[in-house]
Design a protein around this nucleic acid. Structure first.
Lengths: 346, 346
DNA sequence: CTGAAAGCGCTAACAG
DNA sequence: CTGTTAGCGCTTTCAG
């Protein structure tokens, strides 16, 4: 069985005390160069590695941070995780990822599991189904370091990193309008999510700027974030069935953009050709999609980096922090191939 | 600052000893029901949670398993991770994910970082750049529990979970042949990867079965697994420049399928229409791609489940295990829209 | 039935 | 410059 070497083994082998070995290894200034040399050479030889668990117990910290996202299999989040990792590893932290799958129960379980002192801080993006925030309040009340990103919770005072949802939604909607679409629907994630609300506002503002009517029935929400295929299909079907059928759809959520396309293709391939779609999406494949898609791309990697940076600041702060920031990064908007072609014709 | 409650707090508050509290909480049979009740009620009230780090130190295990994959932002791996998680969480294990980004250095660092006793076992899928396996041998020689999945290492005796690479490649190549393509190239990942070798064999077997020539120059490898955009483009360019230009490409790696399409579209959009592509791919978007793609889909989720199951068996084994299995799961093969249409015409 | 004490691997006063 | 000792939170003999 696996039996790692300890500082004690070294001490015994070299006829020293454990504390001398410990100090020698970490270069304590009180140790003679000679001893240091002997110890570190021997440590090297038997491939000694300090036990991080013992260190954690001692220092009361684990040098790891937890991440709770809805899905790793989602371009935005996997890119954000790359950003998170890049900072965390540089600063000597492990990253422990867990997925809520947009389920409230799993979010609660995972956060409690993580927060239970095996991590030093938490990076959270809320699940679509979460409407009760007690589990987060409890942690926060205990002074547990946390940073929100993307799907944030206003009522918690801490650092937050988001993209400029208003700007992205406004630009995407405006793009559709400028290309001649007048009946623009809005397919959205769960309505209580911060991203949904902010993007909704951007969408409406664009409609209003161009004097278009904001119709209640044009807004369709997916309360489970598209976790259930049926909810997306039913939302799309509802839009298709409207007496005044939309000629374009603004999709305000990453995964939903694809689900919306898929649903359209399944329900009515002809409509899929006719209806123009603009949506939030971070997939690298988006340019290769058949009914082509205009899209808003969030700076996911950068958001992950920033959030992690802020979290580590919180964790390593000497004194309690009371001033919190909300970083807002700008989104990029890309026009679809089909619109590009039509633009040439105009 | 965050200060969790300990067993000592409970003991003090209740006028008991820490050992009594400990036993009461874990239902030790020597404790009176009355004491148990009092202790557990109080623990509940102050929301006591045992410190997993202290437990780890004591039990010499952390109840967490490490996963090393090249990229989380890759459908195959993110689905596999979902499978891994589903089993791990059920059995009370944390999952710590780290990414090699197909770099040898990062693989070594991550594995050493992880194996360094903060995990009880390791799930590995090799990086494309790895050709030196010392870091793995060393771990294995120490009896450290590990299971390979997808990109395995033959020379290590342990459990392995793979998909039937021969079958998938054979079927995909055969599909192209049956649709009338005769000049089928092979775009592959790094040549020393197990998946590359096995898929190469399947590809060749199909060519040979139908009496097609196996041309050396039709095989193009990406030594960095497509991490560098340039290497994919250069490989595709090489194929396009061949005097006897291929009329189809079999892509034997998940990420490369998309990169190949992207490169083709960039280098020669016309050729992208003409050249039929069949490749390994696990993306959910694959049906929506413009030059449509025939594809081999691996049972990623199931592979993750199986691998984790085997790993936990290794970890929890009472006596050293000497009989190891290699599980081989069957792939599904899907025909692209464009081939479907032509098939109708025939 | 309950308490005292040792120990998991490591670090850090405190002594020499 | 080096050793002794205590302690991080918890479990577990060994004594009562």
């Amino acid at each position: 069985m696996y039996k790692p070497t300890t500082i004690k083994d070294i001490a015994k082998a070299l006829g020293l005390s454990t504390s001398t070995v410990s100090r020698a290894l970490r270069g304590g200034y009180e140790i003679s160069d000679e001893t240091k040399r002997i110890v570190s050479e021997y440590a090297q030889k038997i491939n000694y590695k300090p036990n991080p668990i013992a260190l954690s117990l001692k220092e009361r910290r684990s040098y790891s941070i937890g991440v709770v996202v809805c899905e790793v299999a989602n371009s935005f989040f996997s890119q954000a995780i790359n950003g998170i990792e890049s900072i965390a590893y540089n600063k000597g932290y492990h990253v422990i990822i867990s997925q809520s799958h947009d389920s409230y129960e799993r979010e609660v379980t995972n956060i409690q599991h993580l927060a239970n002192r095996s991590i030093d801080g938490l990076l959270i993006s809320l699940s679509a189904e979460t409407t009760n925030y007690d589990h987060i309040h409890q942690l926060h009340a205990n002074g547990f370091p946390m940073v929100f990103f993307d799907r944030v919770l206003d009522e918690i005072q801490t650092h937050k990193v988001i993209s400029d949802n208003f700007q992205g939604s406004f630009a995407a909607t405006e793009l559709l309008i400028k290309n001649g679409f007048k009946k623009i629907a809005h397919l959205a994630n769960a309505p209580h999510l911060s991203i949904t609300k902010e993007r909704q506002v951007g969408y409406q503002a664009a409609l209003q700027k161009y004097g278009l009517e904001v119709k209640e029935e044009y807004n369709q929400y997916c309360f489970h974030g598209g976790r259930l295929k049926e909810e997306v299909e039913s939302a799309v079907q509802t839009l298709l069935n409207l007496p005044d059928r939309p000629d374009a759809i603004f999709v305000s959520s990453d995964r939903l953009s694809i689900s919306c396309l898929t649903a359209l293709m399944k329900l009515n391939p002809l409509a899929a050709e006719q209806i123009s779609i603009a949506g939030f999406n971070n997939s690298d494949l988006v340019n290769l999609l058949k009914p082509s898609l205009s899209y808003v791309r969030q700076p996911a990697f950068e958001m992950g980096r920033l959030a992690t940076d802020l979290l580590i600041q919180l964790i390593e702060a000497k004194r309690p922090i009371t001033q919190f920031e909300t970083k807002i990064l700008t989104n990029e908007v890309f026009i679809s191939d089909s619109l590009k072609k039509e633009a040439v014709l105009l």
